[in-house]
Each structure stands twice: as structure tokens, then as C-alpha cells.
């Protein structure tokens, strides 16, 4: 009947594991948006990743193949979006929405024979003595491989965006594609690469759901995670490390609500579920209102059409 019944250590480690799908998808979308492209098809790419990862791990029994299949499937679907929006100049918002529709349909078709099947277990790393450490063991050494991969990826993306020349080019393209083009950068090529990276990340996030978190394949199993990822990028104000914070917030609120119920504290699930979105809006207001435009990190060309002028 009280908060004390919620063990903070266990709560934390469950939250970490639960936040991985949305964390991966949001991280990918962050890179896409940093390049100035808004892809609303995250949900579609995630679920394609989920079904392809599941099919691969089921047939090969190899977690590595499952992971690769998830990434490739998400990336390929993203490539459709990339070609349509970057080469054929279709509208990004509409194309992203169509991508979600297509992804949901295609995944259900591909997955039909795989409903109700249990996949092979996904192995966890063994840290030996480290895992037995009090507190620290529970906090850091009890996860499956992809959790560590996800966090390394966050560090990598942050390093790439802020410390490398490639990251600088990507950001400058996102900030002002005409200027970047004038400087001789390949706007379309860079954006295509970013879009595919985003698709791969989303696919991996979906794969995590189907291979580890749930683990099974069911039609429509992403149940809106992809849309939360979009919210998360905004919440994080386009900074990779804040994506972690946001993923914990979004995942944590759901978990907190379940935990509060389980220990008998009265909550209104509907209002609690709204909270992360309202917080995101507030965060957006705060960063947009701040006087220093550069501190907002919002890409200047986000969602705008680029056409090469000779």
C-alpha cells in the first residue's frame, strides 16, 4: 500500500530494458531529423524490423542473423521513403504516413505463418562476478546484449554528430540545405544515408520487441511505439543523450503507473498516460522560447524540400 513496496533497483533495471525499442527508434529518427528530414513512418519501419527479425531468428536460430535482418528490413523500407522524398521530391509528411500504412500491412502478410510461435531464446552476456555485485550488479550487469549496443550507439551518434566532420556536414545540411549545397556537400546522398540509418535503428527497435522484450510475433505488436519515438526526439530537443532521459521518462511513466496500481495506490491511468506528451509540449515551449537560437538544436530545414539548383 505504499511507495516503499516499489524496489527502486528493480524498477530501474526493468525500465531500462523496457525503454530500449523506443530509445533505438528515437535515436535513428534523431539523426534523420538532424539531416533536415522528417520521417513519420517510424512505426512502419519498426514493425517490419520486428517481423523480419523474428522470421530470421526463428529459421536460423541465430540471434545475430535476427538482429541483422531487423536492421536491413528497417533500412530497406526507409530507402523507399528516401527515394520518394529525396529523389522524386514527394511530400515528407504524406510519404511517411503512407510508409506506416504499408509497413503495417506488409508485416502482417509476412508474419502470418509465424503467429503463435515461440522464438529461440536470445542469450544474455555473463559478466561473472560483476553481475553479483550488490546494487551495481543489478543496475548495470543484468541486461541482454542489445541494451549495451543501444547505449553504445547513443554515445557513437553523439560523438559522430558533434565531434566528426561527417557529423558537421550532416548538421549543416539539416540547418540550411541550400548553403550546404553551395559549399559542395551532397545533400541528397547524405540524407539518404541518414534515412537508412534511421530505418535500421527503428527496425532494430522493432526486432528487440519481437525477439527479446515480448518475445513473439503478433500482428500490430508495436502498438504505437513508433509514434512515441517521434515525440521523444522532440522531447530530447535533438540531443542524443537526452533521448535516454526521454526514453526513461516515457517508459518509466507506464511502468510507474503499473507499479502504483500493483502496490495499491489509486491512480487514473488515462491522465498519467497523457503526462509524457504534455511534458514534451512544455519542453518544446521552453527550448523554443529560449533566446539563444543555437541552443535549441532544432534543424532549420526540418521537413523542407530541397531542390538542387544549377
Amino acid at each position: 500500500m505504499d511507495f516503499a513496496a516499489i524496489n527502486p533497483l528493480i524498477f530501474f533495471s526493468t525500465m531500462v530494458a523496457a525503454s530500449i525499442p523506443v530509445l533505438l527508434a528515437a535515436l535513428g529518427e534523431l539523426v534523420v531529423e538532424k539531416s533536415g528530414v522528417l520521417n513519420l513512418g517510424v512505426e512502419g519501419m519498426m514493425i517490419i524490423g520486428a517481423v523480419c527479425g523474428f522470421i530470421a531468428i526463428y529459421h536460423t536460430g541465430s540471434p545475430l542473423f535476427g538482429v541483422l535482418a531487423s536492421i536491413i528490413a528497417g533500412g530497406l523500407l526507409a530507402l523507399i521513403f528516401g527515394i520518394l522524398t529525396q529523389v522524386l521530391h514527394s511530400n515528407q509528411v504524406a510519404t511517411g504516413l503512407a510508409l506506416t500504412l504499408f509497413g503495417l500491412g506488409l508485416s502482417a502478410l509476412l508474419g502470418q505463418p509465424y503467429a503463435g510461435i515461440k522464438p529461440p531464446t536470445f542469450p544474455k552476456p555473463d559478466f561473472g562476478l560483476l553481475g553479483d555485485l550488490p546494487v551495481l550488479g543489478q543496475l548495470f550487469f543484468k541486461y541482454d546484449y542489445l541494451v549495451y549496443v543501444a547505449f553504445i550507439l547513443v554515445v557513437g551518434v553523439s560523438y559522430f554528430l558533434n565531434r566528426t566532420r561527417g557529423g558537421l556536414i550532416l548538421r549543416s545540411i539539416g540547418e540550411n540545405h541550400d548553403a550546404a549545397h553551395a559549399l559542395g556537400y551532397h545533400v541528397v546522398r547524405v540524407r539518404l544515408a541518414a534515412i537508412m540509418f534511421g530505418g535500421g535503428c527503428a527496425g532494430l527497435g522493432g526486432g528487440y520487441l519481437a525477439m527479446i522484450r515480448v518475445p513473439q510475433w503478433t500482428e500490430g505488436m508495436t502498438a504505437g511505439v513508433g509514434w512515441i519515438a517521434l515525440a521523444l526526439v522532440v522531447f530530447a530537443s535533438w540531443r542524443p543523450y537526452r533521448v535516454i532521459l526521454g526514453a526513461f521518462l516515457f517508459g518509466g511513466v507506464t511502468l510507474l503507473q503499473l507499479n502504483l496500481q500493483a502496490v495499491g495506490i489509486k491512480v487514473n491511468p488515462a491522465y498519467l498516460s497523457m503526462a509524457p506528451y504534455l511534458i514534451t509540449i512544455v519542453a518544446l515551449v521552453v527550448i523554443s522560447g529560449s533566446s539563444n537560437r543555437l541552443s535549441t538544436q532544432a534543424p532549420g530545414s526540418l521537413g523542407r524540400l530541397f531542390h538542387k539548383t544549377m
Partner: peptide, 25 residues
């Protein structure tokens, strides 16, 4: 009985989270 309302008929991830939470409790 520890009862958790998830407000959905079908959401594998959320149901998994609910099960996890209950077990932790």
C-alpha cells in the same frame, strides 16, 4: 490479489511490462 488495469485488450509490450511489474511485487 494485486490487480493492474492496462486499459487495452491487446498490447504485448504493455502486458509484458505489467506481468514483469507484478512479479517484482
Amino acid at each position: 490479489f494485486k490487480i493492474v488495469w492496462v486499459f487495452t485488450w491487446f498490447d504485448p509490450a504493455k502486458e509484458a511490462d505489467a506481468a514483469q511489474t507484478l512479479i517484482e511485487q
